[in-house]
Design a protein around this nucleic acid. Structure first.
Ligand SMILES: [Zn+2]
Ligand SMILES: [Zn+2]
Ligand SMILES: [Zn+2]
Ligand SMILES: [Zn+2]
Lengths: 141, 141
DNA sequence: GCTTGAACCTCTACCCACTGTAGCTTGTAA
DNA sequence: TTACAAGCTACAGTGGGTAGAGGTTCAAGC
């Protein structure tokens, strides 16, 4: 049986985060020692590793919860899993294209800057005057 | 003079957000009517437009605050501005490369999935077993 | 001038996904 | 036995807003 600190180290999680996951019902309440300290088994280790990996891949805790639920029912079709993963993929792709637009505009601003006084700064100029900006913020990209 | 709702519409900001910016000292306290309602001038309009544009380009409110301060001192060198913008560019680039790694791995997971039962689902398999994953989460990429 | 109702006001709580702190108790190795 | 690392609970705070309750003010139409 593992103490919470050991579990934390093995999964690269902070102790508080583990207690937080328990609090929101993502991890089951573990057994306790006489003195009230949490003790974990291998099932908990696997479950927490799963959660951490899902988080590293950008899934929300809610999506992670759904994935865990599905993972607990091995006979069901994996279509639902794939829907969640696909949704996450779309999400990531939207964020990428948004960030690429920002990257482009930031680079342009910096390239065009005269590096003189603030009053001539192209960066501030663009910030003040949206029409000098090539990014389409309105369209969410 | 503009009421808060008009200012909100003109800048594409929610009314609550404007009050929030005032609360954190990003917008100055405006004049009020006899009855206590806020009234804004063109200076406020420009300042809020600047803030919104900086936000759309991904700058944090803290960075935006620094940019506003610099913008108020037209005689200073724009080097500081460029440092902030450059920092933001780096930030954006880090986020992009992280997201691209996720994108790649999500696509791979989905491509390899047999679309059968949950027990055979490649997506869940990868989530359960990090060694089946090609993304390097450890290195922050 | 009066009525109506949209828009304003303050205050509080909530979102996500944690993280940090204070003040106390327990477990374990020397 | 003692020292102290590691555990415990409870609560506050992060960023960047957003939502709602419950009350007040403004302005247009009559
Ligand atoms: Zn500049
Ligand atoms: Zn722009
Ligand atoms: Zn699958
Ligand atoms: Zn991975």
């Amino acid at each position: 049986m593992l103490a919470i600190g050991t579990l934390a180290k093995r999964t690269g999680t902070k102790v508080q985060t583990i207690r937080y996951y328990e609090q929101i019902g993502l991890l089951p309440e573990p057994g306790r020692t006489e003195g009230g300290q949490r003790r974990y088994g291998d099932t908990d280790l696997d479950r927490l590793a799963f959660i951490r990996h899902a988080r590293q891949l950008g899934f929300t805790l809610e999506a992670t919860r759904e994935l865990l639920d599905l993972s607990d029912n091995p006979d069901r079709s994996c279509a639902e899993v794939d829907v969640i993963a696909h949704r996450q993929l779309k999400e990531v792709e939207v964020r990428i294209s948004r960030l690429e637009a920002l990257r482009k505009e930031l680079k342009r601003m910096l390239r065009e800057c005269s590096r003189d006084t603030v009053s001539d700064c192209r960066v501030l100029e663009v910030l003040r005057d949206h029409s000098a900006c090539l990014a389409n913020h309105d369209k969410g990209v």
